[in-house]
């Protein structure tokens, strides 16, 4: 049974008014502390990511990649410094930012089907009390189709391989219809087919002008897919490589 309720947005939603600065994420001297022992998980990070850019965050485990993504998603508190997402504090433009967690952070034994996992991506636009309807499920079905999950959409999420679980999480992030996608290790230990599909989806997102930030510990053959690569080590930024043609664009 569905009740049609007035739209009541979840907390801290932005007004929808954004200055057209061309910048998706702006970070100035950012420090973030996630443990009690006063070690910086992010230490004096300064970086600007333009709208429509695709950026890879590269570093070993503990380098601060996940912390950067979670801070950008508004999930962690900032100790000092500034971070703006579409000109607002993180966690304000919730409908424009989608965070894809690492697979290990999800309880895959939870009694939930793939379709129901993916439809949670529509909740941000439904707000309190409203349930997803035909429109939302149609969108879910088209994403399941795109990621080749339609045949198994009614299976319990724990019955899937790692690659299919990762695709289900990506499908949810796509249903969110965000302008900024924060993907945490989406290609970690996935099959060839999933890598291929991810490559195609990332290309499509780039064409649509979406901003994508991916955390990964190895770039592999995807290096050429990114406009720039930010290297992190022990919470510090140790360099940023720009793609050659992106460099030329900047110079031009």
């Amino acid at each position: 049974m569905r009740l049609k309720m007035p739209f009541i947005p979840y907390s801290d939603r932005c007004s929808g008014v954004h200055a057209d600065t061309g910048i998706a994420v702006e970070v100035r001297n950012l420090n973030v502390n996630i443990s009690a022992n006063n070690e910086w998980a992010l230490n004096d990070i300064t970086v600007t990511i333009g709208k429509g850019e695709s950026v890879a965050l590269v570093g070993a485990n503990g380098a601060g990649k996940s912390t950067f993504l979670k801070t950008t998603a508004g999930l962690l508190d900032v100790a000092s410094g500034k971070i703006f997402v579409f000109g607002h504090h993180p966690g304000i433009c919730r409908h424009r930012t989608a965070y894809l967690p690492q697979r290990v952070e999800i309880d895959w034994k939870f009694p939930m089907t793939i379709r129901n996992l993916v439809v949670t991506g529509s909740y941000v636009k439904l707000g309190w009390f409203n349930m997803p309807g035909q429109k939302e499920f149609d969108k879910v079905d088209s994403m399941l189709d795109l990621l080749q999950l339609k045949e198994i959409a009614d299976q319990q999420i724990g019955q899937l391989s790692g690659g299919l679980q990762q695709r289900a999480l990506l499908a949810r992030a796509l249903v969110h219809e965000a302008d900024l996608l924060l993907l945490d290790e989406p290609m970690n230990a996935v099959d060839k087919e999933t890598r291929k599909i991810f490559g195609q989806v990332l290309g499509e997102l780039h064409n649509q002008g979406k901003t994508v930030i991916i955390a990964t510990h190895e770039l592999g053959r995807f290096e050429s897919s990114f406009d720039s690569v930010i290297h992190l080590h022990d919470g510090k930024q140790i360099g940023r490589d720009f793609k050659l043609d992106a460099d030329l664009d900047r110079v031009g």
């Binding site: 965070y99 309880d107 309190w128």
Partner: peptide, 17 residues
């Protein structure tokens, strides 16, 4: 829907507010 999501994936639930 909110109670289910907060139980299943509290991080995503927090991200969408």
């Amino acid at each position: 829907k909110e109670l289910e999501l907060a139980t299943f994936d509290p991080m995503y639930s927090k991200q969408i507010g």
